[in-house]
């Protein structure tokens, strides 16, 4: 039986892990290679690296980070950030990523998903979908540019369209919950998981094993978290033990 996945995420800038990216106060949180190895040893099922560099120089450094992480990492690695063209994806894959994620660029030009799937296969193409509750009228809209821009586009409809075009997985982040520690947006998780047939990774808002379990109960195939693991309060292994005790099938 296919198990549920627990996926730590590293936000990386200029070769270092950073915290507080989506809010103020970007601060150094360590060496990505060291953290990647530690998460694998703790039982992480996969790793996501988001390159949050804003410059070309930063992007070049990110490629070297991916190479260094790949050398030690024996589990799947997804890398996102700055993937606008097939060529951007190719460079990340050549450096050692197994999957690439794309966000704003795919919203601006949906054909990118088809191009990536045709070249690398859809199992390699992750749509990073950032969603926020609409101010009025219910439902969720797609947000882009790291939350700076609300598009008005329906999040569920975009998820369906993206998987038709070529996305083989959806990394779903609730912009309302991200960084709050209030738990994942469960209605959003349920709506997207129910609308698509590809795997869905829930992200944004996790502060406890119970939060992770609730997202998996709501239909997510995997859960992504950053803060709860970075702060050293808990380990991936301890979280997986807690999830297993709640009746979820996990690799242990």
């Amino acid at each position: 039986m296919l198990t549920r996945r627990v996926i730590p995420c590293l936000d990386v800038r200029d070769g270092r892990v950073v915290k507080g990216v989506r809010f103020q106060g970007l601060r150094d949180a360590g060496d990505p290679v060291e953290q990647a190895a530690r998460y694998e040893a703790q039982g992480a099922d996969e790793l996501v690296i988001l390159d949050v560099s804003a410059t070309d120089e930063g992007r070049a450094t990110a490629l070297r980070t991916v190479e260094a992480v790949r050398a030690v990492l024996g589990i799947p690695l997804t890398v996102g950030g700055g993937v606008r063209e097939v060529e951007d994806a190719r460079r990340l894959l050549e450096a050692g990523a197994d999957k690439v994620s794309t966000n704003t660029a795919a919203v601006r030009r949906p054909a990118l998903l088809a191009e990536l799937a045709e070249r690398f296969g859809r199992q390699c193409v992750v749509l990073a979908l950032d969603a926020a509750a609409r101010a009025e009228g219910g439902g969720w809209e797609v947000v882009v540019r790291a939350g700076k821009e609300r598009t008005g586009q329906d999040a569920v409809a975009w998820a369906v369209e993206a998987t038709t075009l070529g996305a083989g997985e959806i990394l779903l982040t609730s912009w309302d919950r991200d960084g709050t520690g209030l738990g994942y947006d469960l209605p959003l998780t349920r709506a997207i998981s129910g609308a698509v047939s590809v795997p869905v990774i829930a992200s944004g808002g996790a502060a406890s094993a119970e939060h992770l379990a609730a997202a998996l109960y709501a239909g997510a195939d995997a859960v992504l978290a950053a803060t709860i693991f970075h702060d050293g309060h808990t380990t991936v292994g301890a979280v997986k033990d807690a999830l297993a005790a709640l009746g979820l099938e996990l690799r242990r």
Binding site: M1, T3, A222, R251
Partner: peptide, 13 residues
């Protein structure tokens, strides 16, 4: 088959 997530991504026995 239909009825399961495809692609299958992740760990299986």
């Amino acid at each position: 088959p239909d009825g399961v997530r495809v692609p299958q991504l992740g760990w299986n026995w």
